[in-house]
């Protein structure tokens, strides 16, 4: 057990502090923020970073640090929820399709291929147009767009695993199909899913920003990093911090989560022990 945790790779060395900082920011933000993130102070619009406002203020004089802290909570929550839904639904459907084959497989693949045929962002836009713009509908729209790729990855892995003889061994041991899937197939499917989940997290966060940029957003005045970015656009030349701060937040979070995903995959790998 010691050597399983003993070698901390570079991935974990950089990833853990980054994700730790993110979680700390969110945690602190729950109890304390320097200013009310939605309080408008028209006497100090576009204030540059300084002692009073560390990261400056926006066009309505709102504190950028406070907004970023609240934005972290909302952005991460939206991305996490999206990934959780996409991975859960996608893994379940992928296992079903890959294990059962036959009609279930064909039907599921037809649907996934049809969804995959639309550009993700377009599909999300269309869904949000129908559902109305709220954080819930953004999660639903994005996870609908991402689920098919999860189904594809899981199904492909299941197809290669289910032909291995230890699956037959599990059947001769008297395992029911559900037990076989849970004990023998799922653990072998997890590593690619973990990596996919972290990269989807990044995509979800970027898409949320992109959607905000296109005007489909978590309703204002609640800030998300994407919202903040899109609102900063007109002031880019006079108040660069308005885009730099949320931009850095997004970049740092993505880097941290992806590195953590790679580290997780390595920890899950029995071949690490030689």
């Amino acid at each position: 057990m010691m050597d399983r945790l003993g070698h901390v790779g570079l991935n974990a060395l950089v990833g853990i502090p980054l994700v730790g900082a993110l979680l700390a920011t969110i945690g602190i933000g729950l109890f304390w923020m320097p200013y009310d993130p939605i309080a408008i102070d028209l006497t100090h619009p576009l204030g540059s970073p300084g002692l009073r406002h560390w990261f400056g203020t926006d066009e309505f004089g709102r504190d950028v640090l406070s907004r970023s802290m609240l934005g972290a909570r909302i952005s991460v929550l939206v991305a996490l929820a999206t990934v959780a839904v996409a991975i859960t639904v996608g893994t379940a459907l992928g296992l079903l399709a890959g294990y059962l084959r036959g009609w279930t497989d064909r039907l599921l693949m037809m649907i996934t291929d049809a969804v995959l045929a639309f550009p993700g962002i377009l599909l999300a836009l269309a869904l949000i147009a129908v559902l109305g713009s709220s954080d819930g509908s953004i999660v639903l729209a994005l996870s609908t767009a991402y689920t098919p790729s999860v189904v594809r990855v899981v199904r492909a892995t299941v197809l290669s695993i289910r032909e291995r003889e230890f699956i037959e061994a599990s059947r001769t041991a008297g395992d029911s199909p559900l037990e076989t899937i849970a004990r023998h197939i799922l653990p072998n499917v997890l590593p690619p899913v973990v990596v996919l989940a972290t990269s989807l997290f990044g995509w979800a966060m970027l898409s949320e920003s992109a959607l905000s940029f296109l005007g489909v957003k978590v309703p204002p005045p609640a800030p998300t990093w994407g919202n903040m970015l899109s609102e900063s656009r007109p002031y880019m030349d006079v108040a660069s911090w308005l885009s730099i701060v949320p931009g850095l937040c997004i970049a740092g979070t993505l880097l941290g989560v992806n590195l953590l995903g790679d580290a997780l995959r390595d920890w899950l790998d029995p071949w690490r022990e030689t």
Binding site: R164, E165, F166, E168, A169, P187, N188, P270
Partner: peptide, 10 residues
């Protein structure tokens, strides 16, 4: 095939 008959993760 002793390579494919044992689950590599157990």
């Amino acid at each position: 095939d002793p390579y494919s008959s044992l689950n590599p993760r157990l």
